[in-house]
Design a binder for these strands. Structure first.
Lengths: 151, 151
DNA sequence: ATTGAAAAAATATAGTT
DNA sequence: AACTATATTTTTTCAAT
């Protein structure tokens, strides 16, 4: 699982797939000066080595009426394992992302809720979890910048 | 720009595309009991209404040797507009995401760096920006949970 | 708004340099 | 490791219900 070296062609192919994951191999090939089968071989290899984890649709939650996002610092009870925290968090569908962090908090959790009222109920639900000691929330006002792929 | 209502079929199609953005229309159609053209029409409509913003490849930064992620609270100089902050942040390719937030900080920025040394140089660069007054960083230890699509 | 059929395009799998 | 050619699959278009 060491660092996988990408040549210029791989980088261009990855960049193209980040921009448009449904681009045809032929289209990508035109851009990088490769035939469609050659592009496919490289994409297969990039998936095999784990560089490309998969392809996903980017959804606009606002268009669906999910207007409220929050970043929540979660403080856990002593001796809570990451696995236990994960098991607890994945019970809540509003949790869109969670990662353990350095600092006072144990994890930062991203929540997506329909509105502030919904957000409040989610936070209540999460604070009821036995492994959660405390939560500090900040509400997201607007997305300034988003670079897909890693974002 | 009001909330777009999705019926069950739309929801299933969106869910399928979040799981695999390169799935063929025929494959999606088999899952939801629709013909390929019918699926395509719905996907086109979902793109038109902005529900689907696009399709992207999910990259594993670790596989590429980008091992260090950080969440940075950015405190701006008084009267800094979001537009000015954006203009400043997009100059730094390590900024993967940025959003304005409630609370003491003005924005939360996600950074992706090759290593801690690289992270340090990025933070120095950002702190040199005239609109930035202060930064509080926390380093990401591990991704616990990630639900693609909105994540 | 979906279906079905036909045309066009893209993909997978060869074999070749 | 990449190209060309070919068989197969998929996408797209269009007419019809």
């Amino acid at each position: 699982m060491g660092p996988v070296p990408l040549d210029d062609l791989d980088e261009q192919i990855v960049a193209h797939l980040i921009r448009d994951a449904r681009a045809s191999y032929a289209e990508i090939g035109t851009g990088v000066g490769l035939s469609a089968p050659a592009v496919k071989r490289r994409v297969d290899r990039l998936r095999g080595t784990g560089v490309i984890k998969g392809f996903t649709a980017r959804i606009d939650p606002h268009a669906l009426g999910w207007t409220t996002e929050a970043l929540v610092e979660v403080y856990c009870e002593p001796r809570t394992t990451p696995a236990a925290l994960l098991k607890c968090l994945e019970r809540h569908p509003e949790v869109v992302r969670a990662e353990t962090v350095t600092g006072k908090a144990d994890a930062v959790v991203r929540l997506l809720a329909a509105d502030v009222r919904h957000l409040e109920t989610v936070l209540e639900r999460i604070r009821l979890e036995s492994v959660v000691r405390e939560t500090h929330s900040t509400v997201v006002l607007s997305r300034l910048l988003e670079r897909p792929g890693n974002g």
